[in-house]
């Protein structure tokens, strides 16, 4: 069945696929995990805040991001971020934001909305009494959050956060629409150049599959180890 195919195209281009493509995908994923969780936690805290303006803003932002497709958000940000940059630094002309930085910003801002909802569920899973206990001990809001609520919330939420991260890792492939060379972009460029679509796309699917299955397996093991026993 595979007689007419040339899987040698994969080995010949492996250095490019890994060093350029996979490197982009992994760097992007790691930065977005960090920034997404930071922004996501802030958004969740804003949403749960008793200050109306903050919670209204966070709610609107989260709902907006969760109602539009990632592909559309990618286009939005790639074209819009330079203008926002110009507005922030009061520059008369749009600021140059490269493809990589733009992708980092796009995915962080998008994932933050998803992480925020997971975080909110996590924070809300902590009994109110614990917060009061914190205050009773003389801790202020930030101390209570940092020492009592968030550590437990994170533990409860780690499995879902990691599952979401696997989804996000897969979604980084969508930078393809901007012709950026992530792992899939690299594979598709070679596919187009050499007319080897079947070989390259099957290879890409196998690589993503193996990575995601291995990570999911590790997540399940971790889940068993860190579960809080009540």
């Amino acid at each position: 069945m595979f007689g007419q195919f040339d899987f040698g195209v994969i080995t010949r281009n492996l250095p490019y696929l890994i060093k350029v493509g996979m490197a982009f995908t992994i760097e992007l994923t790691i930065l977005v995990i960090v920034l997404g969780i930071v922004f996501g936690t802030l958004l969740a805290m804003m949403r749960l805040s008793s200050i109306k303006v903050l919670s209204a803003f966070a709610t609107a932002y989260i709902n907006l991001m969760r109602s539009v497709p990632l592909v559309l958000v990618i286009f939005w940000f790639y074209f819009l971020v330079p203008y926002i940059g110009a507005w922030i630094i009061r520059s008369p002309t749009p600021v140059r934001v490269g493809a990589f930085l733009s992708s980092v910003i796009t995915y962080s801002m998008f994932e933050a909305a998803y992480y925020a909802e997971i975080m909110r569920a996590g924070i809300q899973s902590i009994p109110r009494g614990q917060v009061w206990a914190g205050y009773a001990l003389g801790l202020n809001y930030w101390q209570t959050m940092a020492r009592i609520v968030l550590p437990q919330a994170f533990r409860n939420m780690v499995p879902i956060l990691l599952t979401q991260t696997i989804v996000m890792f897969q979604d980084t492939s969508l930078v393809y629409v901007l012709s950026i060379t992530d792992f899939l972009g690299a594979a598709s460029k070679i596919a187009e150049r050499d007319g080897r679509y079947v070989e390259m796309y099957i290879f890409a699917a196998v690589v993503y599959f193996v990575i995601c299955v291995v990570i999911s397996f590790l997540v399940r093991r971790l889940q068993r180890r860190i579960a809080i026993i009540r």
Partner: peptide
């Protein structure tokens, strides 16, 4: 010299927004 890939649909917005010169 920085190199930025463009497609037929992204080239004009990316020029306007300063991503490419």
């Amino acid at each position: 010299i920085a190199l930025n890939p463009v497609t037929s649909s992204t080239r004009i917005p990316l020029m306007a927004n300063g991503t490419i010169d």
